[in-house]
């Protein structure tokens, strides 16, 4: 918790960049919303969602961009490259948990200052669907929280690639790329062709953005919602375990090479 709080404070130092990010997210939100609304104008409902749902989805997904580090967060990889990672490894707290807490703090900051403002602007200018039932909000907040952990689960192993490669930028960039598309930032998953959509919905990326935002729209309830959580939790367990074994291998390598 203390680690998360410190990360929160550290990132609040970048006010200018935050403001600029909000402007960018908002503008992209309006462009994407207009495109999909134009599609709804011809096609009517798509995958059970109407134009207002989709506009809401677009601003929701924009709000998730920064929070889930979809543009390729390389913080850990950079520390590995510069060797600063050594001091992190000697800390008396678990390395993976330390970074997870750090990420949660960062995500909390991004959610409040990068996520909410574009959504509010979108809601003022456009007709968005804001849930009124507290149950929907609760279901959404839990799904969003799991989405942030899941995003960390994906990003952590990609960053650890820096232990084995001189330049891990490519690996991180490609992972982020997959995330942006498969988590539903370019198009909502329900716009995808059916076969593709079915597969994409099973991948971990879907649980990062698409499923939480759809939960906000009230699309997942009851058993369906339980399925969403199960998918998120399942992938979290798998990815954190994968990250952990990679970390062990990396530490072993460090010991062998004498740091």
């Amino acid at each position: 918790m203390a680690i998360a709080r410190r990360a929160f404070r550290r990132f609040s130092a970048y006010r200018g960049a935050t403001f600029a990010g909000v402007v960018t997210n908002t503008m992209f939100g309006f462009v994407y919303a207009a495109v999909f609304v134009a599609a709804h104008a011809v096609a009517g409902d798509i995958g059970g969602f109407d134009a207002v749902d989709t506009a809401t989805y677009v601003f929701g997904a924009q709000a998730f961009l920064a929070m889930t580090g979809a543009h390729g967060d390389r913080e850990i990889a950079e520390r590995i490259r510069t060797g600063e990672i050594a001091s992190d490894l000697y800390r008396p707290v678990d390395f993976q948990l330390w970074w997870l807490s750090h990420d949660m703090g960062k995500a909390a900051y991004q959610a409040i200052f990068r996520g909410i403002p574009p959504f509010v602007v979108g809601a003022i200018v456009l007709d968005l669907r804001i849930p009124t039932s507290p149950g929907t909000w609760l279901a959404f907040l839990l799904a969003a929280g799991l989405g942030v952990v899941l995003a960390f689960g994906v990003r952590f192993p990609a960053n650890l690639a820096a232990f084995w490669m001189l330049d891990a930028r490519g690996v991180v960039a490609l992972t982020a790329l997959a995330q942006v598309f498969l988590a539903g930032h370019i198009v909502p998953l329900y716009f995808m062709p059916d076969g593709l959509e079915r597969v994409v919905r099973l991948l971990p990326f879907a649980g990062i953005t698409a499923l939480p935002v759809e939960t906000l729209l009230g699309a997942h309830r009851g058993l369906d919602l339980a399925g969403v959580y199960a998918l998120q939790l399942g992938w979290i367990v798998v990815l954190l375990a994968a990250g952990r074994s990679l970390l062990t291998a990396a530490q072993h390598k460090l010991v062998v090479h004498g740091g």
């Binding site: 495109v35 999909f36 134009a38 599609a39 709804h40 011809v42 096609a43 798509i46 598309f181 370019i186 198009v187 716009f191 995808m192 062709p193």
Partner: peptide, 12 residues
């Protein structure tokens, strides 16, 4: 992304 949108609608 553009191609995907056009799988759901014939025109924009």
């Amino acid at each position: 992304g553009i191609a995907v949108v056009f799988t759901k609608t014939p025109e924009l």
